[in-house]
Structures are given as C-alpha cells and as structure tokens.
Simulated scan of single mutants.
Amino acid sequence: MKVNSIDIFCEIIDNFGDIGVVYRVSKELKKIFQNVRIRIVLNRLDEFKAINKRVKDVDYQEIDGLIYVTEKYLEENIDSFGTADIFIEAFGCNVFEEYIKKAKESSKLWINLEYLSGEKWIEDFHLQESLIDSKTLKKIFYMPGFSEKSGGVIIDSGFLERKEYGAENREKVLEKYFPNCDFNNKLVGTIFSYERNFENLLEVLKDYDKETFLILMGEKTHKSFSEILQKKLTENFGKIVKYGKITMMYADFLSQEEYEEVISVVDFNFTRGEDSFVRGILLGKPFMWHIYLQEEKAHMDKIRAFTERFKESVEDISDEDKKVLDYYLNLLEEYNDRDTNSFEKGKEDFKEFFENFDRIDFICKKYSKFLLEKCNLVKKLYKYIQEY
C-alpha cells in the first residue's frame, strides 16, 4: 500500500502513559515513512509539554518533521485539513464524527490501536476487521501484546540507541543528571510509581549487605516516600535523604528521552503504567511494575496474564531459576494487589528479590531478548501496512 499521510489520534485523560506511547510510535513511524505527512491529534497539551520540553501551547506546531495539532483546531478546520490515508485511533479515543464521515469517503485504513495486554484472547482478535459502512475504508483491531501472535510492544530505534549508550557510559550519564552524587559501590535503582507504601522495600534495603541509591521519580513517588520517611529517623539534606544504608534522591521531572537515558544505566527499575514498564523490561534489568489501578481489581487479571506470558517466554532455564522466577512473579502480583492507591502497607517481601538479584537479572535479560527479537510492534505494523 502506498501511503502519503497518517493521522494519529490520542485523548489524554489524567496521566502521561497514552501520550508517551503515541509520541514514541509517531517518532518511529516518521523514521520508517520519511516522506509521509504524519499528524498527531491531541485533546490537550499539558502532559505532552511535560514529557517534551520543546512543545508550545499552540494549536498547530511541527517538531522534528511531525505535526501536532489540537483536536479542537482540526475539527474547526477539517474542510481544509482533510483526512489521512491511514488514521490510528489510539486506545478507543473516539475520533470526532466529521472526521469519520470524511474518512469513509477518502481514507483507506482505520487502525484501532488497543492497550497493551498479556491476555491470550487478544491473539485471536489481532488484525481482525470491524465492519463499518464504507466501500473504501477498512477498520482493523491492532492488539499490542507479549507474544509473537500479538501486535507486540513498542521498540523504537531512539530507545535502543540510548540503551546501548547507557550500557557503555554509566558514570557519564549519572554525572550528567545527578552531579556530585556518590554512586560508587552502590546498587542504583529508579522508583516511578502511583501512590503506595514503600515501607517493606525500605526495611529490606536499610540493612542490605550493599548500599543502595534510589532515584525517586514523579510527584506521586515523591509523595509516597515523604509519607513514610517523615515517620523514620532519617538524615535530610534537601533533595537527598539517607535512611540506614539507603540514599534517596527526589529527582526533577525528566523528558521521555532523559528518563530513558537514566534507566538505561541503573541496576534496576520500578516502573508504572505502560510506557515506562515496557522500557523497563526491554532493558533486561530487574524491574517491578506498578500497574494502573482499575475498578473491581481488573488490573490483577492483566498482571496475571503478563506473568503467564513471561513464563512462557523463558521456559529454557534451570530448575533453580524457575523457583526464583516463581517468587519474582508472585512478588509482582503482591506488589499490585490493591483496591485503591493508598499508603496502606502491603504484604510484599523484597528480601529474596535482592538476595537473588543476579538470577533475576539473568532471567530478565532472556525475556528482553525474546521481546526484542519477536515482538517489535512498529515493525509488525509497518509490514501489515506494506502488505495491505
């Protein structure tokens, strides 16, 4: 299929996840479709301005060859702007009616990009058609996932470059973002989460046989640690707090690219949502995932589905490693088992996570290799479009 234009619609609700994914996909598509006009349509700009410091508060702007336009502005100018050959509806964001009406007459492919899921049933729905009233426009479901038969996960070249650079330049990157901090002989990790209680983690690390340095990222993470640390006997140096053998730093907000540089050089990453979680697993380092909370604990079904796919993908490991993996995946479930985002103490125990850190690191590297080789979403999407 010859493509001249692509539109990507994204509705930002209350977090950075959706725009983070769309921003990443659009940048990678531009590298593949270099001469294709790509527009990203957003309902608002606040979160995008936070993750990309070049974004301005205007209705229409171009950054690195990509056009960003507000939904309101596109709607007001739809007659002159027109539609695209392909348009992507990210996460059921409901493209406005006038656009759909025109697209049924002039567009070729409507891609319904769903949320990432490990559930097995998505493999049967991936690339299936949804019938619409049009002779020229076809609508398909694109189901991102953790298996070869699914749509895969977003693996963009920019991230891979930062991953490779970080592997060879740990000290340089840490000095760039956290000058004058002492990381020598310390286990270094990042924490990025929704509101939660981290007391269990701190109690394990304060007496751990190795000193640790935790880089605390995001307002909700800062709030979570402040809630606990005000009750502990700590040494407070402004942005840096010490508790036992732990040094913690309240980091400033980073852009998407800056965040990726940092997580590529540390030893482990606690991630949240979807975008940072996928970066965490692709790095092949020990990780924890704080999944987005859903009503009636529906998020726990998603966690269990992911752990099942994880197990399937690293079956060729020793019996001892399998025991460690069982513990690790159970810890991941306990870490997320909640009805609300609160500061209530959980039941997760991180002792074995750090005692078996090297084994978990080995397992995560195997899993990352599988995803990198078999589950590249943009490559899969590009292949589908080319063969359409």
Rank of each mutant, 00 (worst) to 15 (best):
M288V: 07
D7C: 11
K365D: 08
E227L: 02
A305T: 05
F96H: 07
K27R: 15
F146P: 06
M248W: 02
G238L: 04
N52R: 03
N180E: 11
G346K: 04
F48H: 10
K56N: 15
N200Y: 09
F146Q: 05
E195G: 02
G145C: 05
Y208K: 09
D316W: 02
S130D: 13
K369M: 05
F96A: 05
R309D: 08
Q386P: 00
L254D: 00
N180A: 08
S5L: 09
S80C: 11
Y243N: 08
A90Q: 04
K231V: 01
D64S: 14
T70E: 05
K345R: 15
S147V: 03
I154R: 00
G17W: 00
K379G: 15
E119S: 12
F225S: 07
L137F: 13
Y177C: 04
F354I: 07
I6V: 09
E348R: 11
V324T: 13
H222N: 11
G218K: 00
L113H: 01
N200A: 10
F253N: 07
V55W: 00
F96L: 02
R170M: 06
K101W: 05
L332W: 05
S150C: 12
K285Y: 07
I67E: 03
D182C: 03
P144Y: 02
K347P: 09
D79A: 12
A50L: 13
Y60G: 08
K30H: 02
C375D: 00
F354E: 06
L372F: 06
K104Y: 11
S313Q: 12
I140R: 06
F141N: 10
K139R: 15
E235N: 13
